[in-house]
Amino acid sequence: MKTSHLSLAALLVSIVSVAGCSDRHSSSRKNAENTPATASAPRADEWLGKWTGPEGTFLELAGGHGKYDVTVQNLDGPRKFEGRYADGGIEFDRDGTREIIRATDGAETGMKWLVGKKNCLTVRTGEGYCRD
């Protein structure tokens, strides 16, 4: 009787150990999948280059793999910012405000000049840039 209890206890310890190792492995794999360089940054990397807005405005993105140089040309001239992958887009700080560049269509930019365009990036409503 003692032998069967010991065997059962050894079996339970083995199962718990294997399950624990399995959980650690899957959780580290999930964390790796959520890092910018492996999962989502390549989508943002597709946005590299120049995007045009109305009246000579543009957005230009350079870099990649989760770190970006963001140039915004508005009516006051060009400004440069350091961007980073975050929340499915490219995040940067402008004048104390956290901005996120995200993929949209022209209607979602909130700009009548861009309605009907399909391939756009929006910083905030009323500030968008598209590729024709």
Rank of each mutant, 00 (worst) to 15 (best):
T38Y: 12
R79L: 10
A86D: 12
S27E: 15
W47K: 02
G96K: 04
K2G: 10
E108K: 13
K80Q: 14
T104V: 14
S40D: 12
T97H: 13
T52A: 10
A19Y: 08
R29Q: 13
Y68C: 02
G64E: 05
M111K: 00
D132A: 15
S4I: 12
G77H: 01
S4K: 11
A19I: 06
E127D: 08
V123M: 09
N34Q: 10
N119Q: 09
L12D: 03
L12S: 08
L61V: 06
C130A: 07
W51F: 01
S17W: 08
D23H: 11
R24Y: 11
N119I: 07
R24F: 11
P36G: 10
V16M: 09
R124T: 10
R98N: 10
V16N: 06
D69Q: 11
L8R: 11
V123G: 00
L114M: 02
W113D: 15
H65K: 14
G126T: 07
C21Y: 08
F81V: 02
L61R: 01
A103G: 09
A107W: 09
W113P: 05
A62Q: 11
G56K: 05
S4N: 07
H25I: 15
V72Q: 02
V70F: 00
T71N: 08
G110Q: 05
H25W: 14
Q73V: 14
G49E: 03
V13L: 13
K80E: 14
A10K: 08
T97L: 14
W47S: 04
I15E: 03
I100A: 05
E55V: 06
V72I: 14
L75A: 07
I101F: 07
S26P: 01
V72L: 12
A37V: 12
I100R: 10
N34V: 00
T3S: 12
K30N: 15
L61W: 04
V123K: 04
L48I: 08
G49F: 02
T35K: 09
L59F: 04
P42F: 04
N31R: 14
